[in-house]
Each structure stands twice: as structure tokens, then as C-alpha cells.
Simulated assay, not measured.
Amino acid sequence: MRMLTGILGTSRVDLHIRSTTTGASRHYRYAHAYEQGVVDARVWGGIHTRTADEVGNATGRRLAAWALRRYFRPVR
């Protein structure tokens, strides 16, 4: 999500996700809501602890910020 918001220049997204298995759907207006939803789903699903997911999410944001600075520079 950090890569997407960095490229688009805004944290506002209009993201609709629908499960083909259950038919459930989710709508996210902002990147932080999507990120929180992913953490919550993994915790509630018993996949990881909240701390592990939050640390992983923060690591992903730092990696994306680094990639944006290094590889997605404006063309001069």
C-alpha cells in the first residue's frame, strides 16, 4: 500500500475487495484502513500475533519508502 500511495501521491484510495469464496466484500477509502484490515484479518485468522503483523507492516512501509526514493525518482 505504501508503494501505491507513494506513486499516486495520496493516502486516499477507493479500493473494493470481494472474496470469490465467501462473497464477502470490503471497501477501503484510505490506505491506513486497508493496512489495519490486513493486520486484523491475520490476527483474527490466527495466522500471527498483532505485534508480529504490526512490525511486518512497518517494515514493509520502510522498504517501500526506500524503493520509492531509490527507483521511482521523477524524470528530469
Rank of each mutant, 00 (worst) to 15 (best):
M1P: 11
M1Y: 04
M1E: 13
R2N: 11
M3I: 09
L4W: 06
I7E: 09
I7R: 13
L8C: 08
L8F: 09
G9F: 08
R12P: 00
R12Y: 12
V13G: 03
L15G: 01
H16K: 15
H16Q: 13
H16S: 11
R18C: 13
R18F: 06
S19I: 07
T20H: 10
A24C: 08
A24D: 09
A24N: 14
A24I: 02
S25I: 06
S25T: 10
S25G: 10
S25W: 02
R26P: 00
H27F: 11
Y30L: 12
Y30A: 12
A31N: 05
H32E: 08
A33H: 08
Y34N: 04
Y34A: 15
E35V: 05
Q36V: 03
G37A: 12
G37N: 13
V38C: 06
V39M: 07
V39F: 07
V39C: 08
A41W: 02
R42W: 09
W44D: 15
G46P: 01
G46L: 06
I47E: 07
H48V: 09
R50F: 01
R50T: 08
R50A: 12
T51L: 05
A52I: 00
V55W: 00
G56H: 03
N57D: 03
N57I: 05
A58N: 01
T59K: 02
T59G: 02
G60F: 06
G60R: 07
R61L: 03
R61W: 02
R62H: 03
R62G: 00
A64Y: 07
A64Q: 08
A65E: 05
A65H: 01
W66E: 07
L68P: 09
R69F: 03
R69E: 15
P74L: 05
R76C: 04
